[in-house]
Simulated scan of single mutants.
Amino acid sequence: MAKKISNKNKFKRKMGTGEGANYKPFITTSEFNSIGTTTVIRDWKTGRGVHCLSQGEMY
Protein backbone atom coordinates (compact mmCIF):
# COMPACT_ATOMS: atom_id res chain seq x y z
CA MET A 1 0.00 0.00 0.00
CA ALA A 2 1.27 3.45 -0.86
CA LYS A 3 1.42 6.13 1.80
CA LYS A 4 -1.23 8.81 1.84
CA ILE A 5 0.09 11.93 0.15
CA SER A 6 -0.33 15.15 2.13
CA ASN A 7 -2.35 17.97 0.61
CA LYS A 8 0.79 20.14 0.59
CA ASN A 9 2.59 17.60 -1.61
CA LYS A 10 -0.48 17.16 -3.82
CA PHE A 11 -0.44 20.89 -4.59
CA LYS A 12 3.31 20.73 -5.31
CA ARG A 13 2.70 17.84 -7.73
CA LYS A 14 -0.19 19.83 -9.27
CA MET A 15 -2.66 17.05 -8.56
CA GLY A 16 -6.28 18.06 -9.18
CA THR A 17 -5.29 20.29 -12.07
CA GLY A 18 -5.40 20.03 -15.84
CA GLU A 19 -8.17 19.39 -18.33
CA GLY A 20 -9.26 16.38 -20.35
CA ALA A 21 -6.59 13.73 -20.82
CA ASN A 22 -4.04 15.92 -18.98
CA TYR A 23 -6.02 15.98 -15.71
CA LYS A 24 -4.17 14.60 -12.65
CA PRO A 25 -6.62 13.23 -10.05
CA PHE A 26 -6.45 14.68 -6.51
CA ILE A 27 -7.46 11.35 -4.95
CA THR A 28 -6.00 8.11 -6.29
CA THR A 29 -6.91 4.49 -5.59
CA SER A 30 -3.47 3.74 -4.15
CA GLU A 31 -4.17 6.02 -1.15
CA PHE A 32 -6.84 3.72 0.29
CA ASN A 33 -6.45 0.47 2.17
CA SER A 34 -9.26 -1.62 0.72
CA ILE A 35 -10.36 -5.24 0.79
CA GLY A 36 -12.70 -4.47 -2.10
CA THR A 37 -12.01 -3.76 -5.73
CA THR A 38 -10.27 -0.60 -6.91
CA THR A 39 -9.78 0.00 -10.61
CA VAL A 40 -8.56 2.65 -12.99
CA ILE A 41 -10.63 2.73 -16.18
CA ARG A 42 -10.11 4.78 -19.34
CA ASP A 43 -12.83 7.38 -19.94
CA TRP A 44 -14.16 7.20 -23.49
CA LYS A 45 -14.86 10.92 -23.70
CA THR A 46 -11.73 12.54 -22.25
CA GLY A 47 -9.24 9.70 -22.70
CA ARG A 48 -7.95 9.92 -19.12
CA GLY A 49 -7.83 7.32 -16.37
CA VAL A 50 -10.69 7.46 -13.85
CA HIS A 51 -9.95 6.04 -10.37
CA CYS A 52 -12.92 3.99 -9.10
CA LEU A 53 -13.08 2.85 -5.47
CA SER A 54 -15.79 0.18 -5.88
CA GLN A 55 -17.37 -2.07 -8.49
CA GLY A 56 -20.59 -0.03 -8.40
CA GLU A 57 -18.64 3.10 -9.24
CA MET A 58 -16.89 1.25 -12.06
CA TYR A 59 -20.13 0.14 -13.68
Rank of each mutant, 00 (worst) to 15 (best):
I35Q: 10
G16I: 00
N7K: 14
V40K: 14
V50I: 15
G47H: 12
K10L: 05
E19T: 09
W44V: 12
P25E: 04
N9E: 14
F32P: 00
K12N: 03
Q55L: 10
V40Y: 09
F26L: 07
K3Y: 01
G18F: 11
T28I: 04
Y23L: 04
K12D: 06
I27Q: 13
P25K: 11
F32I: 08
K3S: 09
E57A: 15
R42A: 06
K12G: 00
G56F: 03
E19W: 02
N33Y: 07
W44A: 10
Y23V: 00
G56S: 12
V50F: 13
R48W: 05
H51I: 00
K4G: 11
W44L: 09
T37Y: 07
G49K: 13
V50L: 15
F11H: 14
T38P: 01
G47M: 10
P25G: 02
G18I: 08
G36L: 02
G20R: 02
F26I: 02
S54K: 11
S6C: 06
K4H: 05
M1A: 10
S54N: 15
F32R: 14
D43G: 11
P25S: 06
K14F: 03
K14C: 03
C52W: 05
K8I: 05
K3P: 03
G18E: 09
K45R: 13
P25W: 07
G36N: 11
N33K: 14
S6T: 15
G56P: 01
Y23I: 00
M58W: 03
